[in-house]
Design a protein around this nucleic acid. Sequence first.
DNA 1: CCATGATAGATGCATATACACATAGTTTGG
DNA 2: CCAAACTATGTGTATATGCATCTATCATGG
Lengths: 142, 142
Amino acid sequence: MLPCMCGNFRRTSRALTQLYETALRPIGLRATQLTILQVLGRTGEVSQGQLGEMLAMDSTSLTRTIAIMRRQSWLAERPGKDRRERRLRLSSAGEAQLGRAMPVWEKVQSRLRRKLGQQAWNDLLQLTHQVTGLVTTKGDSL
Amino acid sequence: MLPCMCGNFRRTSRALTQLYETALRPIGLRATQLTILQVLGRTGEVSQGQLGEMLAMDSTSLTRTIAIMRRQSWLAERPGKDRRERRLRLSSAGEAQLGRAMPVWEKVQSRLRRKLGQQAWNDLLQLTHQVTGLVTTKGDSL
DNA sequence: CCATGATAGATGCATATACACATAGTTTGG
DNA sequence: CCAAACTATGTGTATATGCATCTATCATGG
């Protein structure tokens, strides 16, 4: 058991990413890309900066990932009233890709949930969410 | 709260990585590199493949990280009896770097533990370890 | 001992990701 | 209305990471 919380999370993320990406490989989707499709599917149109905040990801990092997803025609964008903004949403091809991904994703989720047990599963979703909130809160004394 | 366990872990990893790397930046150490120093400090000499297994990381990915750390002279290596293997250990400069990193790391760990509470902290270390084990076990029905 | 198949690590390629810095557009005090 | 400060995103650069594939070794059955 690594004593470092960060090292632990990074290791588990690598393991989970391999699990999910192995399942998603046949439909040509990476873990990050699935997350973006899922978030946009829920929220509708958001700016790149808002998306970065929701994902705890540097919004300039999203520039490259979005470019890749646009090449696949999964995303549509338009400028906002503030013309510096890129407002992003799923294209119809993006909705279709999300539709192909969901059954695969649900199967992986289910198998993992069964292995872990409902209690540990719920605890993990809650705790990881809590940590993200604690760590990303502005002005915290961390 | 993202519904995807993988997406959740990846997001929390990004947040934690920023927290830890901000603290480690003054001594010029990345999160992955700290983990490798800590593991080698504990285990002594191991092969690249063994290290990859301990970190749930593709051992060929380690080739590049190890090269970077060797440029900093933090690692020493020698071939094993099996001459395909690279057996790795900390150099004295690596031990010194680990020594510089530990107080910084402990401070970040403490602050986060205080914020989270001892119970959540322990639960997280245990649960993340469990997930890693479940997901990386060979021949699992996942 | 040798041909075969298996394994450890190296390399090419692609994505993920952060940060520093450059740019364009916005906001605001005067 | 304008200059200064601020903000959203793009770009250059570096590390992180996985997979396919290649090479050097090793292990094993004849």
